[in-house]
Amino acid sequence: MGSHHNSASHCFAFEQDFIGNWRCIPLCVRRKLDLIGLKLKLNHWLALSQAQRQELVDWPDASDALEQLREHLRCCTSGMPEGMAKDLLPIVDAAWQQADRCPAEVLTAAATRGVGLTPAQWSGMSELERFALCKLVRPGHDHHNLEAAFSEVLA
C-alpha cells in the first residue's frame, strides 16, 4: 500500500504528463492549498517560474511550514494581474482526512470500475492518496485519470 509515500510532495504516475513542466497544479500542492485555505488559480500557478512551482511541490506539510506557505503564496501572488490568492476556510475533517471511513462516492466509483476497495486498503493509504481519489471522483471532474489512480494507489 502507499502509506510510504510522502503526502507533502509525492506526485503520482498518472500525473506524469504534466510533471516537469508543471502545467497543472499537482494533487500534492492542491492538498497543501486545501490545508492552508488558499485559492490558487491556474493563472497564478502558471505565472510562477518553474523553480517556484517546484518549490511548492517540495514544500513540507508540517503546520508551521504550512503557515509559511500561506504567507509565501500571498506574497508571490500579490503583484499578479489575477490579484492576490484568495483566502478560503482551511479544510478540516474532510473525507480524505478520515482513514476509518471511505466515502460512498469513492466506493461507488471503484465498484463501477470493477475495483474492490476494502476499509483496510482505504485506511492503509497515505492522506495524499485518499485526497487524490476524493478529488478525482467529484462530479464534473475529468474522470479519465480515475482508473489509473485506482490501479496506482492499490498497486
Rank of each mutant, 00 (worst) to 15 (best):
E152H: 06
E67Q: 13
K135C: 11
E105T: 10
F131G: 08
V137G: 10
A120F: 12
K32G: 07
I36R: 03
E82L: 08
A62T: 13
I19T: 11
I36N: 00
S63N: 14
P90R: 06
R53M: 11
A95L: 05
L89H: 06
L38T: 04
L66F: 04
Q121F: 08
N6K: 07
R53I: 12
Q50W: 10
L38C: 07
D142R: 01
A149N: 07
G83V: 11
Q52Y: 12
L133C: 08
C11E: 10
C28W: 03
V137H: 05
Q121S: 12
F18V: 00
A8Q: 05
A104T: 13
A155N: 08
E67F: 13
Q121P: 00
H5E: 11
D93Y: 06
A95R: 11
S123W: 02
A62E: 14
A155D: 09
F14N: 02
C11S: 11
E105S: 15
N43H: 09
H10L: 02
A8M: 01
F131Q: 02
E105F: 02
D93Q: 14
K135P: 00
I36D: 01
F12S: 09
P90L: 01
T77W: 00
W45F: 07
L48M: 15
L89Y: 09
G140R: 13
F150M: 01
A51D: 15
R53S: 12
F18A: 06
I25Y: 06
R130K: 03
A94Y: 01
H141L: 02
R113F: 08
E82P: 01
I91R: 15
A47C: 13
N6Y: 02
C11F: 02
Q16S: 13
W122N: 09
Q121T: 11
Q52I: 03
P119M: 07
D142H: 03
P103V: 08
T118V: 04
N145S: 14
S63L: 10
F150H: 05
R70S: 09
G114Y: 09
V106T: 07
V153D: 04
V137Y: 04
S126K: 00
Q121D: 14
P119K: 08
S49Y: 12
M125W: 08
R113T: 06
S78G: 08
E152G: 00
R138H: 10
L48Q: 08
E147S: 09
F14Y: 12
N43V: 05
E152F: 05
K39G: 12
A8F: 08
R130D: 04
E147C: 02
L133V: 01
N21Q: 03
L40W: 03
H44R: 07
V137F: 03
D87S: 14
L88M: 14
V153Y: 00
A120D: 13
I36F: 00
S7L: 03
K86G: 11
M84W: 01
D64T: 10
L66K: 02
